[in-house]
Design a protein around this nucleic acid. Structure first.
Lengths: 208, 208, 208, 208
DNA sequence: CATGAATGAGTTTTCATTCAT
DNA sequence: AATGAATGAAAACTCATTCAT
């Protein structure tokens, strides 16, 4: 295996600096209001240089988004995989995201806006984005189905359950980031996990 | 004091046509990408006419948003007020929104983007918007607290419960609108109400 | 002689109100920044009405300018005519203008800007304007020539002398209007008349 | 700290071309009627390029004005400083301006309009402009005062005398530029200097 | 590879002027 | 005659993208 040519190292270096900068700038201003000039300045390069690595403003935006999602996805999968029960899997799922976005607030701004955009204008999103996002849903769905089969929880629509977990996760993260002082992550996560867990696991019919 | 405009009717007519057009255009493209020219064309008037009724692009955007939210809020309050139990209140809450946004997909796009924006950049957004949105949360919170006092549900953090209801509602609506063919609203709503209800009402500790 | 038809009265009334308003508004903002809407509002009529009396923004501007100049010209001629000597004629000339513009500051703004414009872009001014303005110069020139013939003053270039009188007049008025508190007109005028008079009347050669 | 622009030469070149163009265009049309597009065309660059060097239409206007005034001021001071007597100082003062504006007619248009604007709406105008202009007046005033002290001229109000010199200068320049064929500068200047000099220097009382 | 000057399409907003009522 | 709603041309300014150095 040839060691990377100088240019590969350089490329990796620039790419990383540019994506960092992009995340900050898009996170601060949103896609439209962000400018290539600002990203370049933030990354410490000239404007033209951005175009040596990315074809367009959109494309650096997608790249930043994709990288963040991929990283988040990787972390999530790693931690969820270790969970022995669905309960723990859900807890790890939510906790991973809460912790990740606590670290990367800027990225959350991009992520959530894009997610809303997706929800709302499916035709627009980048082809790469939806699958990455859907994989999460499918992962949860599979876990839920397995738990049903194991008798851990009652028979629920696995797809809807997965959706609900995702929705509640987003809600927790959103509200955390809106507050100036953030509560301990574990406490907040446990509360929402408790809610969803009762929702999934309680059997029989409840008095309304 | 200027005598009244020749025709309040005309103003109402134009205003309404412009807000309709604004909703469609902002819904399709988002705030930044939308153009006044397109809104004008869509409303069947000349560009300058828009400025006879609204001072700026932002202001017609807010007007469209405000009108939609006010209408949604009114409908929601009316139906929730009639509900005898928290269970029914939650059901009506969600159902009202599902039905409203089924009718007004365009508006959902604006609404959800703005909501995400709020979550993410609270300093932006119009002053009018947050209160209108927070009122919802407080309404739910009050209902939850009352239900706890009546012993309908277990002791939960009312604020978190309200947040969860809002999050799940948004999720349901989002996913409905993403699908080409929409399921019956009632079925979908019942499923999510069931989930949240069990989450709130199930007492004792559950095996994990 | 038929008495004026109603419409003639009305026309006179409107015209006068419009010119007053125009003077104020053009005086306050200059030609470009002034708007027909503001003139109409100031005159207490609707925008469209302005166009019943004047064909265009330029034309109401010219009308306001012309009226002011004509009035100023009339006053000046009347007072200058009475003067027995050139010295008095000059004094009356300057005094009339100082007094007139003390009364009508707004008009001075229009007048002086237009005069500068004329000086600078002769091709632009309205055809009516230059003659009105030149008549002043010729009047002074004639008076100077007569004074030379009478031996009141030394032989000077009458045209240049007339120009100098006009220039100094403008300067006095300008500086008066720039100051918050205005000195007595007579004192200021006498000072400048003294200067110009010595300039014109002193004979022989002076040590330099 | 950004390293110096690649080429200060380029900046100087563009700046100069743009100011030249600005002078021509503002001179032709006045501030309001001039357009950035026309300035750009005149300078042989694209519209956007203007904004690389100046932040706004106003700012290129001020820059053109300031440059012209500064140059004129420098020339004037240099030549006036050399004059041994007030008579010569006045002559040099007027002559410098006549010659300068003979070269730069376009600039005169801007200059005189701005001066009128100042006279008439002091609150507008750029902060830099008034001092630059007032310095002239003060310079003349000082020279007049000194001449009085030396007994060169009679006791006159120095401030008024300075004003008169400025007014007459403007008049001479104006009238020169209005004519198609211009007389020799010296002849015209001498005539007006003679006038003002007699005005200032003639002692005793003159028959009126 | 990197730069940053140049470009010009595209957007918001204003306002003189028209014309149906 | 009067109105004022509607029009759309025009202008300042921004910024993604290109390309000569």
């Amino acid at each position: 295996m040839p060691r990377p040519r100088r240019s590969a190292v350089l490329t990796a270096f620039r790419t990383s600096a540019l994506l960092d900068a992009a995340r900050r700038v898009f996170g601060k201003s949103g896609f439209e209001a962000a400018t290539i000039a600002e990203i370049a300045r933030e990354a410490g390069v000239a404007k033209g240089t951005v175009y040596l690595y990315y074809r367009s403003k959109r494309s650096i935006y997608w790249a930043a988004l994709r990288e963040g999602i991929a990283e988040l996805d990787a972390r999530t999968r790693k931690r969820v995989r270790r969970a022995a029960t669905l309960h723990d899997a859900i807890r790890e799922f939510i906790l991973t995201k809460v912790e990740y976005f606590d670290e990367r607030r800027d990225f959350f701004r991009i992520y959530v806006q894009e997610l809303s955009g997706q929800a709302v204008r499916p035709q627009f999103g980048h082809a790469d984005f939806k699958p990455l996002y859907q994989r999460q849903l499918r992962g949860l769905q599979t876990a839920v189905t397995a738990a049903i089969d194991r008798g851990e929880i009652r028979r629920v629509d696995a797809s809807r359950a997965a959706g609900a977990i995702v929705d509640l996760t987003r809600g927790v993260v959103s509200r955390r980031l809106m507050r100036r002082r953030r509560a301990r992550a574990a406490a907040e996560v446990d509360a929402v996990v408790d809610l969803i867990w009762r929702g999934l696991a309680s059997k029989g019919s409840l008095k309304r």
